[in-house]
Simulated assay, not measured.
Amino acid sequence: MMHLIYALALLLVSSVCLATPPASFPEAKVIAKQKVYFDQANSPMGELYCGCQWTWVGKSGGRIDAASCGYETRKQQNRAERTEWEHIVPAWTLGHQRQCWQHGGRKQCINADPVFRAMEANLFNLYPSVGEVNGDRTNFNYGMTSGIPAQYGQCQTKVDFKNRTAEPRDDVKGLVARTSFYMFDRYNLHMSRQQQQLLMAWDKQYPVSAWELERDVRIAAIMGHHNPFVTGERQWRLGYKPVGDGIVSSLPRANVHSSAATEAGSHEASGSIIGNRNSRIYHLPVGCPSYDKVSAKNQVPFSSEADAQSAGYRRAGNCS
Rank of each mutant, 00 (worst) to 15 (best):
S43F: 03
K29G: 02
D113L: 05
Y127N: 07
Y49S: 06
P90A: 06
Q53R: 12
V89R: 07
T138W: 15
L126T: 00
N125V: 01
A80S: 10
G62C: 04
W85I: 01
S43A: 09
L10M: 13
A28F: 08
V115Q: 13
M119A: 05
Q108I: 05
H103Y: 15
I31C: 08
S24F: 03
N42A: 14
N125F: 06
V133G: 08
N134K: 05
P128D: 01
G105R: 01
G61C: 08
N122V: 00
P21S: 06
P128C: 06
Y71E: 04
V133M: 15
P90I: 05
P128H: 07
C50E: 00
A66M: 13
V13H: 11
G105K: 02
C100S: 08
E120W: 09
G104D: 03
E84H: 12
W56L: 09
T93C: 13
N122L: 11
C50D: 01
R106P: 00
G61D: 04
K35G: 05
T73G: 06
F116W: 02
V13F: 14
M119I: 00
G46T: 00
D65G: 06
G104F: 09
E86H: 06
Q99F: 14
Q76R: 15
N134Q: 09
Q34C: 03
E84D: 10
P44T: 02
G70A: 07
T138G: 10
G131R: 07
G104T: 02
P114K: 07
V30C: 10
Y37T: 02
M45P: 01
L11T: 04
Q40G: 11
P22D: 08
S15W: 12
T83I: 11
K75H: 12
K33Y: 06
C17G: 15
G105F: 00
Q108E: 12
R63V: 07
W56E: 05
G95Q: 03
F124W: 05
R106W: 03
T93F: 15
T138H: 15
H87V: 05
C69E: 04
W85R: 06
A23I: 02
L11F: 15
C109V: 00
M45L: 14
L126R: 01
N134D: 04
L11V: 10
W56I: 03
E84T: 09
Y37P: 00
R74H: 11
N134A: 09
C52H: 01
N78M: 15
C100A: 01
V16D: 04
T83F: 12
D39G: 11
E86S: 04
E81H: 13
V30Q: 12
Q40N: 12
G105M: 06
T93M: 15
Q40T: 11
L94E: 08
E86M: 06
A112D: 09
A121S: 09
G104I: 09
T20Y: 14
V133L: 15
Y127C: 07
C17L: 15
V16M: 15
P114A: 09
W92H: 12
V57F: 12
C17D: 13
I64D: 04
Q53L: 04
E27T: 04
G46H: 07
D39L: 13
S15I: 08
V57K: 10
A7I: 08
I64H: 05
W101G: 06
V133A: 13
K75V: 08
L123G: 00
A19N: 07
C50H: 01
S68V: 00
E86D: 08
T93N: 12
K107P: 02
R117Q: 05
R79W: 13
